[in-house]
């Protein structure tokens, strides 16, 4: 390419000739296009390993299809690609966990009342499992370190909740702590749940969790899509949150 610029004709005339310019264009394009094609070939050799292509189950494939046929990228980003209206979902399986994803997809409006809305696509249970599988696969692709961990100020809190309340049910760590905190870790939308077992009994908690609006009309506490087993585990766990016991110890 550099050679094309320094032809004899150019030196003779003291300037670049049109044919030299054309040669520069064609030559440069040919060289870069060849390198690009070679790198493309090599990339395709590496992709199966870097993306765990062997773990691409039928569920993951169906999940990808659901992701596309509902244009999830029109609001969210995945691998940082998409629109910037809703959260980046590459690491959602690791960050929020499957219980949160299921609750969110079952009733998107319930989780963040009064906030930016997500469409309810009325996914069937098996479709939700496919999407969970897709997110789990996506989260394990080698992305050269993306997304980077936040490196300013105090790190995000949510991840620590599960550690500090070892016996908490999965749904508590992934769903409840989005808004509520326990031992200082979690969200700040709803009240802290430290000592909630002192304040509320099990019967009230169950009624409250089943349908918050019937207990307190106008509350922003969502009616979460919980099954009986999850509900039972939550009531047991919340009832056991007593500050008095800790003081006695």
């Amino acid at each position: 390419m550099g050679g094309a610029l320094g032809t004899k004709a150019e030196e003779r005339r003291g300037m670049l000739s049109k044919s030299a310019a054309k040669a520069f264009f064609l030559g440069g394009t040919a060289v870069t296009a060849s390198v690009f094609l070679a790198l493309t070939w090599d990339t395709f050799q590496q992709i199966p390993g870097r993306t765990n292509a062997s773990a691409l189950t039928e569920g993951v494939k169906r999940g990808k299809h659901l992701w596309e046929s509902n244009n999830c990228m029109g609001c969210h980003t995945l691998f940082g690609e998409g629109a910037y209206y809703a959260p980046e979902l590459t690491k959602v399986h690791e960050r929020r966990g499957p219980a949160f994803i299921r609750a969110m997809l079952k009733d998107p409006q319930a989780m963040f009342p009064g906030q930016r809305q997500m469409t309810n696509y009325h996914f069937k249970d098996e479709e939700i499992e496919d999407l969970v599988a897709f997110f789990e696969w996506v989260g394990k692709v080698d992305l050269n370190g993306f997304p980077a961990k936040p490196n300013l100020g105090a790190p995000a809190q949510r991840a620590q909740v599960a550690g500090s309340t070892g016996h908490a049910p999965e749904v508590f760590g992934q769903v409840c702590t989005t808004c509520h905190s326990l031992q200082g870790a979690g969200g700040t939308v709803g009240p802290a749940l430290d000592g909630v077992g002192d304040r509320l009994d099990a019967a009230y908690l169950e009624k409250w969790l089943r349908d918050p609006m019937s207990v307190k009309p106008g509350t922003t506490m969502p009616k979460l899509p919980l099954d009986d087993a999850q509900l039972g585990a939550l009531v047991t766990f919340l009832s056991s949150q007593k500050l008095t016991k800790e003081v006695a110890q």
Binding site: L39, D42, T43, Q46, I47, R50, T51, F79, G80, E81, V141, D142, L143, N144, G145, F146, P147
Partner: peptide, 11 residues
């Protein structure tokens, strides 16, 4: 091709 699962040399 930095962060979509393609090799590091793309950086």
């Amino acid at each position: 091709y930095y962060y979509i699962g393609t090799p590091r040399y793309w950086l």
